[in-house]
Design a protein around this nucleic acid. Structure first.
Lengths: 339, 339
DNA sequence: AATCTGAACGCAAACGCTTGCGCAACCAGG
DNA sequence: CCTGGTTGCGCAAGCGTTTGCGTTCAGATT
């Protein structure tokens, strides 16, 4: 019922091996014969069975992409960009969405990806056990979210420097009580929150400001979390006059909390985010932009080159540029008090 | 180097067939033997090669999901939900991201999905040729975005009714000049924009309002498009006092354009969206909510049941509930003029 | 005690492709 | 005219599973 390689072999009057070589562009087939075979294959609508092909050749022409939450803007955008590179190169993408702890555990114990992919792009930072499991696959690995691990190609940004530029901006405006909405580093070994926090602390130290632990609130990298965190900060005896949110989503949650408290932004409170979410421009959020799609593209490209040149060794970490974007949610402190 | 079924067969002292039967839960293996085999497999870290398994059995245990833009919130969310259902059922997900016309054309002509999947979930509406190509795969098909096609399981919402409730709300507030920011139906056979437009026209007719073509602007379902469209509407001799945007992303673009023109929302202009984007609550957008993740889940479930019962025939279209959400971007017209 | 019946397991043939090797046929050089 | 080297193609052995059928053997049935 489904057309196989022998069908096109018979249609052309040659052996299956010749068809295989012709269609895969291998040498040992005359140009004339190749043309005839290609024509016959097209006419019959032949597509090689990937199962059979990869069983015989050991190559799957498939890349595994594991991501924590496809639904979130950041990961969706990275995936989008990476997928385009992979599919343009003739690879299929096998998606593993590991949002829940159960899904994640199931994936790393059963490792359904084994023998199914030629390479893996991980958008989550595996803990050491998970990293070992991935390494045991024996295929090239890459990750886009910092946290270099041996054997992984890593593409990332300067989280610390980015945080510094955001907080320095607040300091330069004259703010002294600067809150931070951070993400839990609870999914272990996820270094981004730590790095961004370090940048925050660096600038405070630089400016001679004593860091106050009460000014740090956990927003879990979600909008709701950001809102909760901002609410906590506003309940303080001395609330901050400015807030650095470690992600734009949390910053937006903060904006919402501020609006609920009838506080104006930036007159009463300044807010700066991180990431440059696609909707940040819409709400006028001052933030630190990182090239999200570009990171996905770059990681995908690097992975493909490692596939082409297996002996090149694991490459150097790549750091993509970031840039501070001034919009409308930051201003000098207390401007609004005189109204 | 990689552990195969014969390795665990030898380790247990049985034949490969018995190992296969034991691991797949087939009958004909004593419980004691099954336990021994399972233990040995676990110890050796054995995973069946999907290529070999699907070559032999004809089942791939893989679902193909084709989506126009994984990066966009709507599709990312549907994908997220669907993937969870599939992976929980033991299926892998093969992702095809068909954003560009070239990618889309390449996909439908080469059909790399052939012989690779047991079913296909399409988050884009295939045109008739594309639908035929998918049908030729001979596997169950489903789609989540309206536009029923023969052979497809379809899960969707009442786009027309949703648009009606949004526009009726504006009419009830007293608006008479109501603009609409629509999406081009340019990706052919994509009925959502048409249905939502019909809802808009229905309510106008009902209220005795003469529809004005100048009040309809194209926003292409993106934030930037929405902003452009709103700008166009504001340039009219008689700009609308309220706007119905066919998606929340376009509504947010509209909000941005309004802010740039120093117009207040809702005092000067009311805006209502559609979809209930995750950030709509943050900006206080009045909108029509649709259960996005639930649609993905439901479509995935239906697909799986069709896989389990191949002879059940193509099921009835499923319509998911929608609901109007009143927030802060709508008010009676001209409230703000007296300032 | 002879026969029948399942249950438990092994044999071997697929599944559709890739690839090393062998074998003609052809060409040019001596 | 014989060698040695290409070129173009077929043969057949895998790749790691699944599965129909055959065999063995213990226990139940006459």
């Amino acid at each position: 019922m489904t057309v196989s390689i022998t069908d096109v072999a018979e249609a052309t009057g040659v052996s299956a091996s010749t068809v295989s070589r012709a269609l895969r562009g291998r040498s040992g087939v005359s140009e004339e014969m190749r043309a005839r075979i290609v024509a016959a294959a097209a006419e019959l609508g032949y597509t090689a069975s990937r199962s059979a092909s990869s069983l015989a050749s050991g190559r799957t022409y498939t890349i595994g992409v594991v991501v924590p939450y496809v639904g979130r803007w950041f990961f969706g955008t990275v995936l989008d960009a990476a997928e385009k590179v992979f599919s343009a190169a003739g690879y299929d993408v096998l998606l593993y969405n590991l949002g829940s702890p159960e899904a994640r555990k199931r994936f790393f114990t059963k490792l359904p990806i084994r023998k199914r992919v030629d390479a893996v792009l991980s958008l989550l930072i595996p803990d050491p056990d998970e990293a070992a499991a991935l390494c045991s696959l024996g295929v090239p690995l890459a990750t886009t979210v910092g946290g270099a691990r041996p054997g992984f190609t890593v593409v990332g940004i300067d989280d610390r420097g980015g945080a510094e530029s955001a907080v320095r901006h607040l300091v330069n405006l004259g703010h002294r009580r600067i809150g931070m909405i951070s993400g839990a580093s609870e999914p272990l070994h996820w270094t981004t929150p730590l790095d961004r926090r370090q940048g925050y602390l660096d600038v405070l130290a630089d400016a001679g400001i004593e860091p106050d632990p009460a000014l740090e609130a956990d927003g879990g990298y979600t909008v709701e979390g950001g809102e909760r965190a901002m609410t906590e900060l506003l309940a303080l005896r001395h609330p901050p006059t400015a807030v650095f949110a470690q992600s734009d989503e949390m910053a937006m949650g903060a904006l919402r909390a501020l609006r609920r408290h009838r506080l104006r932004v930036p007159e009463d409170v300044s807010v700066v985010g991180f990431d440059d979410h696609e909707l940040s421009e819409v709400v006028g959020l001052t933030t630190v932009a990182q090239p999200v799609a570009a990171q996905g593209r770059e990681a995908a490209r690097l992975l493909l080159t490692r596939l082409d040149e297996p002996d090149a060794g694991s490459p150097q970490p790549v750091e993509m540029p970031i840039r501070f974007i001034l919009r409308e949610t930051t201003a000098p402190p207390h401007t609004g008090r005189q109204r």
